[in-house]
Write a protein that binds this DNA or RNA. Sequence first.
DNA 1: AACAATTATGAAATAAAATTTCATTTTTTC
DNA 2: GAAAAAATGAAATTTTATTTCATAATTGTT
Lengths: 282, 282
Amino acid sequence: MNILEKIANELDTLSKSERKVAEVILSSPSTVIHSSIAALAKQANISEPTVNRFCRRLDTKGYPDFKLHLAQSLANGTPYVNRHVDENDSAEEYTDKIFESTMASLELARKNLDASLINRSVDVLTQANKISFFGLGASAIVAHDAQNKFFRFNVPVVYFDDILMQRMSAINSRQGDVVIVISHTGRTKSLVEVASLAKENDATVIGITTKDTPLAKECSIVLSVEVAEDTDLYMPMSSRIAQLALVDVLATGFTLRRGSKFRDNLKKVKDSLRSSRFERKD
Amino acid sequence: MNILEKIANELDTLSKSERKVAEVILSSPSTVIHSSIAALAKQANISEPTVNRFCRRLDTKGYPDFKLHLAQSLANGTPYVNRHVDENDSAEEYTDKIFESTMASLELARKNLDASLINRSVDVLTQANKISFFGLGASAIVAHDAQNKFFRFNVPVVYFDDILMQRMSAINSRQGDVVIVISHTGRTKSLVEVASLAKENDATVIGITTKDTPLAKECSIVLSVEVAEDTDLYMPMSSRIAQLALVDVLATGFTLRRGSKFRDNLKKVKDSLRSSRFERKD
DNA sequence: AACAATTATGAAATAAAATTTCATTTTTTC
DNA sequence: GAAAAAATGAAATTTTATTTCATAATTGTT
């Protein structure tokens, strides 16, 4: 956790003198990482032991260790922590903010992914007779992308972003089929029904969604993609990017599992696209 | 600059003993930030002054200062430097690698984006009579996503992932129309032709592609998305994620430019989706 | 309000860590 | 292969951080 936030949070747990230290640090953290304990004590008008006690209260080993933590927090720029787009942002500002929050989502999603579930999903996928990807709205793009990827593997794969087609396809599914339902909210009624139908018809249902949601309940395997709440109006659905990365992971796992012969084949597909392109001159 | 890279770069400028220090540091940097100069010296089987000299050679003030730099480099992940998926990777390993390289691509793309071009693109988009997004293969997903986003803004927007439809649409374009062509390679013949047709018919052509490519040459504005070469067979096309983030940026810029009344409207669209969802219980 | 108990604080002492100095060793150059 | 240059580490010094302990401030109790 970012130590600057931690200082800000614990500000009221601190004693009067310690708070002085905290204030000096918060007001110019980048100066502090180049100050000795004596310099900081003087700046805050308190004694050196107080600085030391302050550091320990923040669960660091001492002053040098505290500086290390501080340096790390500063290295991250500030990014992560919700940097929402503001009405008066310049192009440069909102560009940076969007890229940063997208990266933050990926980081969060990665931390919360369960590798063993990925493994099980890959197991199931490699043994599937047919793979279907279903999503609506923003998640339709993810399903579309997934189809694109798995299509190259030369396995029967379909994707639908239409409720009726999804239903029909779900009803016709059978044992050995894998249905992957994608929804950020996990609360889209029609998709929950589709998942339920697929399940009733003995398909294995994998959900790329948020855990503990109606949709998650219908799934055999839930690959939960944690993303910070997008309370912000301007905030783009970064959940979909985390979902796409997850699809990449599944596709990669699939390729690895299928072994080297299979991968040669994949290379051929790649090469076959060459003729549709202009040559490179380098 | 990242001090770990710097150490790696200057490895051959260093003396024999200093190189020993460098090797110990590179092999487990995270241990070093918690070691004293004495501990590190012992680990590398050299004396403390040597460590000190090593630090100064890297343009730091001394050992503590060096540790600060090191801590900052570590805070930024370490990931970056090409971590390709390997045949024998566990699910956890390839998951981490994919997420990390995706984030690295985003970081790289962000650094290379030109905010003034974003600004001009947003200018053009806000004044467009009609917006078309064209992409093929993996880039079709990006075009699809873009349509989804801009559709909510209640502007005339279409997307095609079919060559014929793209051609027809391009031929029918006129002054005031904006065509956004998306291609990672910038060398897909049919898309270059489509861009050229659109241009001939007075549409403004914005390219989300790599600069200095045949496609880039046909565009009025090139939003170049730099991504590390994906030399790796397993490497997923992280370019498309950078492209998606860029679409987010354009959409955000669009929203901001259109002013507050417009944003109220956007919120209504969001709310209108509510009835199609299961209620939250929290 | 007066007192005891608790907590906070800093001066001084101590300990730890980093740096400098300088003599010795190793390497390079001619 | 000798002289010069560079590299290295032992020991001394300096700087920095931490601990100890006495004092001061605060809090709670009657």
